[in-house]
């Protein structure tokens, strides 16, 4: 079993942008570690017992929904599935995900970002047929294609790739990995009517694949281990030969 009876020290970023006069600061909290404790459990205990104003976001707390991404000891990741036993020194520093609108403390507005991105890049299926007859047998799809699509669709929009990307941090207008991965998913989908030119118009530029410097913070931190490197390289090759 996991170590028991340790006292953990949490250094937590605190700032309420809506509170006039409040300044960003790091605040230290101490908590008794219990077996199997995750950052999710610890933060809730802190809120319930020590500081009821502490803001953070959890929804599924099972690594599925992507709500709870934050920077833990320098690594952006999902807090719900980060066990405190991972840190032998018992010191855990929590920072909000950089690059997103800060709601307060550890809570950032990833939802707003993702929705705007989806609207900008038109991240939905543009089916070949506007309407299908839902009473009739469905059109077949190659089983391998379906499996490949699912592999790319596992993104949970947690925002880790955006915050782990130095390119995105330096160049605000850069699409970032999440946008490119989603376009790669639709590019692959035989049901989508958009051709390479359509995608080229969206990401065949300095804000898209040609702005990416292949730092791979996206791939290395992605909690779903998505193949950013291969997919972005694939898009880049495709765009590099398109219309040039």
């Amino acid at each position: 079993m996991m170590s028991q009876g340790r006292t953990l020290t949490f250094n937590i970023f605190r700032y309420d942008p809506q509170q006039s006069g409040d300044k960003p600061k790091m605040v230290k909290y101490q908590i008794e570690e219990t077996p199997g404790m995750s950052v999710f459990i610890a933060l809730n205990q802190l809120r319930e017992q020590q500081d009821s104003s502490l803001q953070f976001d959890f929804v599924c707390r099972a690594g599925i929904c992507g709500s709870c991404a934050m920077v833990i000891n320098g690594f952006p990741t999902l807090a719900c599935r980060t066990l405190t036993s991972k840190y032998p020194k018992g010191e855990i520093t929590l920072m909000p995900l950089p690059g997103f609108e800060l709601i307060g403390d550890l809570s950032v507005n990833t939802g707003k970002f993702m929705r705007e991105l989806a609207e900008r890049l038109k991240l939905w299926l543009h089916p070949n047929l506007d309407d299908v007859d839902v009473h009739r047998l469905e059109a077949p799809m190659a089983p391998e294609e379906a499996a490949k699509l699912y592999e790319l669709e596992r993104c949970v929009e947690c925002g880790v790739c955006v915050s782990a990307c130095a390119t995105k941090q330096m160049r605000e207008t850069f699409v970032g990995a999440v946008g490119m991965m989603k376009l790669a998913r639709f590019e692959l989908d035989s049901r989508d009517q958009r051709g390479v030119e359509d995608f080229y118009h969206v990401i065949g530029n300095q804000d898209g694949v040609f702005g990416c410097m292949t730092l791979l913070g996206c791939q290395d931190n992605c909690p779903k281990d998505l193949p950013h490197m291969q997919q972005i390289a694939y898009l880049r090759r495709k765009m590099a030969v398109a219309l040039v």
Partner: peptide, 14 residues
């Protein structure tokens, strides 16, 4: 705060 805005008006491949 970063916004997913585009620097290129009207979105275009370059």
């Amino acid at each position: 705060t970063l916004l997913p805005a585009s620097s290129i008006p009207g979105l275009a491949g370059h």
